[in-house]
Structures are given as structure tokens and as C-alpha cells.
Design a protein around this nucleic acid. Sequence first.
RNA 1: GGCGGCAUAGCCAAGUGGUAAGGCAGCGGUCUGCAAAACCGUUAUUCUCCGGUUCAAAUCCGGAUGCCGCCUCCA
Length: 472
Amino acid sequence: MSIHIYNSLTRKKELFEPYTPGHVQMYVCGPTVYDDAHIGHARSVVVFDMLVRYFKKCDYTVTYIRNFTDIDDKIIQRARALNITTEALAQKYIDAFNRDMDALFVRHPDKEPKATSHISDIIELVETLIQKKHAYVVDGDVYFSVTSFTDYGHLSGRKLEDMAAGARVDIDERKHNPHDFALWKSAKPGEPFWESPWGKGRPGWHIECSAMSMTFLGQSFDIHGGGKDLIFPHHENEIAQSVAANEKPYAKYWVHNGFVNIDREKMSKSLGNVVLIKDLVDQYPPEAIRLLLLSSHYRSPIDFNEQAMHDAVSGLNKLYAALERLEPFTPSDTEAGDLWQRFCVSMNDDFNSAQAIGFLFDAVRYINRCLDESASFNEKDTQNIAQIHADILKIGDVLGLFHQTPAEYADTQQKRLSKGQDAAIEQLIAERIQARKDKNWARADEIRSQLTDMGIMIEDRADGTRWKYMEA
RNA sequence: GGCGGCAUAGCCAAGUGGUAAGGCAGCGGUCUGCAAAACCGUUAUUCUCCGGUUCAAAUCCGGAUGCCGCCUCCA
């Protein structure tokens, strides 16, 4: 079984061959913790969570690192506005981030280092770069010299000459080249700082990822991930400073996820259309958010809107309904079945979860048909269905779905949508059940109509009447 | 100005040379007292448009149009 990954560095799908066979070392850029996490953060986190889950299912050992950027201009600014320390602000949003991602059933990386916990690693790296003449000191600031690194621009596909034509570079006479970037920034009065050989200051943005990835994964590792927007300048600069310092290849495969748009517009604070995870998980089943996020290929843009979210909830309901029907068929723990095999073929092709989810729904239709057609099964059929049950659960384990039993899911939905009138509803339901017993269809339908107006959906099953809240 | 991406049904979305997955919505049917759920059938003779290569193109090449991203903090 071989996995192919699209590598942003080569712009091709490549066979995945980790440095150490059977071991995946992966570093993903985490959030700058100065505000609540939004759906865009969720996409990146969920996509790489899926990668890790899949690698593990394929029997790889995975070392997964995701950082928190807990010191930068925005954090300083925000902390000042709130009159709290940068540490307090960062911790507040680290906690918020973890809460949100836990709600989305995201597994924690093996390490979640903070930039400020690795100041000495960062200083050491900057010193190496100065020694090797890739960086220079000006008034307590340290800059990386882009012209000292011949491969600069490789990842993002740009040339320094072309970029110079662009107007949007700040003019700073002290820099040797306008594209030289800060490795270390001297502290202005009132700013938080750490002592360094160049005076009081703090790390630049890019250097922390180089330092932390090296600390935990070594100088060369397998996968470096993040949002597409990080390709330039962040990842370009990371490569430059890491390769310049180590004189060894940095990450082998660069994986970048696409953006989430909101109603066909870019999500941004200025447009005021930022969708926060904490709001979303109140409104929708968290797994529906995952399903939506994974229903498009990870490199494609996703348009997030109410309709898309609604579709995802419908899909998730269908999957859980099927799982409930499958409960009598205890999942077999034998070899993986055809469904799992097909799932893997899609996932092996650059993690095509969109196609893979198609197979999941194929399987659901198949088992629904089987269960509709017959009430009793011979041993062979039973085994077949149990196998599909096992495969569906295994797929769910990779996509991060089905963390609940169907009953728990229904219950959670109920609680989420409940408007505190459950008792009144139960009473109407009981009355309707009696009316149906009496074959008083007019009364039964009248009650159903009344419940529909209250947002209640009724299902009269062979084993009794059920009701649930309809999605808003 | 430089670099890159995308265009597939009412909506969402796979498919990168062999004759259009899947989801949501709709319609017809089975089931049901009637519904709901589920299932069956149906919904793109065609993949933005125009050329080219090929026995064969949604897929490759050239061109046009439209949309979007990055180049500034950004997942």
C-alpha cells in the first residue's frame, strides 16, 4: 500500500517515502493565539488530523508537532488593549483553541510547543545564521539576508527580481535587501522581551517554526503543513533559514490546505464574516462540520454557507441512521473488507477524502437495501454486513466521525435543539399514540400538524413512534 | 506588474485519455391509515467557449472568457 502526496515544493504528486521507513514526522503551523479560532483554522487542523489518523491506520508511527505562536505584534497590541500580559492573553486563547478543537474531536498532536518556551533554541539558531553570514545585526535587530540563499523563492515560485517590481514592500534603509526578514526584533519601550546577544527583544515570526521543528523532529523531517497562505512568505522563509543554518534539506513534503470562503467571499475581519468554531459547534453537530470540511479535497477552496452546512447535517444523519440499523450486526474484527480497500485507494491518492466519502455513502445505500429486503440473514450475509459495519466504523475513525453511538448522537441532537418544551411534546406524542390506537386519524394528524409547527418531526416505526427536532 | 489556481446537473462535489462517483434538493413509485425514514426509478448524450492532437478528450496542447488566491498579518 503506497501513499502519494501532492508536494507544493515540486508541484507534483509524489510517492510518500519517509526518511525513516514506517515513521512519519510531521510539523504543522498552528495558530497565533490572539483571538478565537474560526472555520479556517478548523479546516487546517481537521485536515492534518485526518492525515495523522490515516497514517496511523496504515501502521505508521507518527510524530506530530503543532505550535502555538504566542508572541507577535498582534498579541502585544491586543494584550495592551485589554491591559493584560501577553502570556495571559496567549494562554486564554490557547485554552479557547483547545476547547474548540476538542469539540471537533481533533486529537492532540504529540507536542504543542509555544514559541516563548523555545527562546534559547531560537537564539542559538539565529547565532548560527549570523556565523554563517546568512544574517546580520542592525541596531539590536537581526535580519536574514535573502540574497545569501540562492534557492530563495523556490517554494513560492517567485524570483527576487520579480518581487522587487511589486510595490508592496516596506522601505527600510537598514536592510540590505527589501525582502530580508527579521529573525530577531529589538524590544520597543513597554514591549515584552527576552535577553539575547543582540539586546532585549523577541523572535521574528518565521524563526520559531524552524527552531521548534528542529528541536522535536531534527533538521530534516518528512511533512510540513499549513494553510496555503503560509507558502509565502512564512514557509519560504522557514526553508531559507533552516537550510542555510543546517546545510541539509528541511521538510521533504510540503502540504498546504485550501481556504474556506464565506458565501463566496474571503473570510476576513474587515468584512465581518468570520465564522467562529465556538458559535458553530453550538448550532450544528461538530461531526457535521468535519464532514463538510472533508467532503471537498483538502487543496480545493471550500465555500462555507448555511446550505452547505445543512447538507452536511443531512448527510451525517443518514450515516448515523444506517449505523443504528447496523447495530445488530456486531462489527467483525477480521481482515478489512472491500469498502475499506476502496477507501484506502482514494486516501492513498493524495488523501482524496471527497471520493472516499462517496464510497461511504455507496455502502450505506447497499446495506439499507439489504436490510429493507430481508429480515433474516444466513451466516454468510450476516458476516458480510458485519464486515461493512466494521469498515464504516474504521473509516469513521479516520475521518473523525462516529465518536458517538447512534443513540448518543440522537440524544445530543435533542439536547442541542431542545427549546425546553420536551414535556409538552411528550404529552402530545402520547395523545397521538392513543389516537392512532383508536384509529382516530383526524386527531392524530391534527397533533402531527401541531408538532410540525413546533419544529418537531415524527417517525412512526414498527417498534414505536419517535420524534425529533428539525434543524432550524 | 509578477506568480499560481479554478470553471462538471437546481446547489455542493469526485473524476486528469476509454465513454460522467457521491451528497443535498426535486419529481414518479414501493412501503405506510396518511406521513417520516429507507429503497427503486428519474434529473448533465455532456463537463465555460473556440480550435488542435488522438481510434478515443471533462481529462492532453493552444487560444478566449469568467471567477478566485498569493505577492502585506492571515488557516
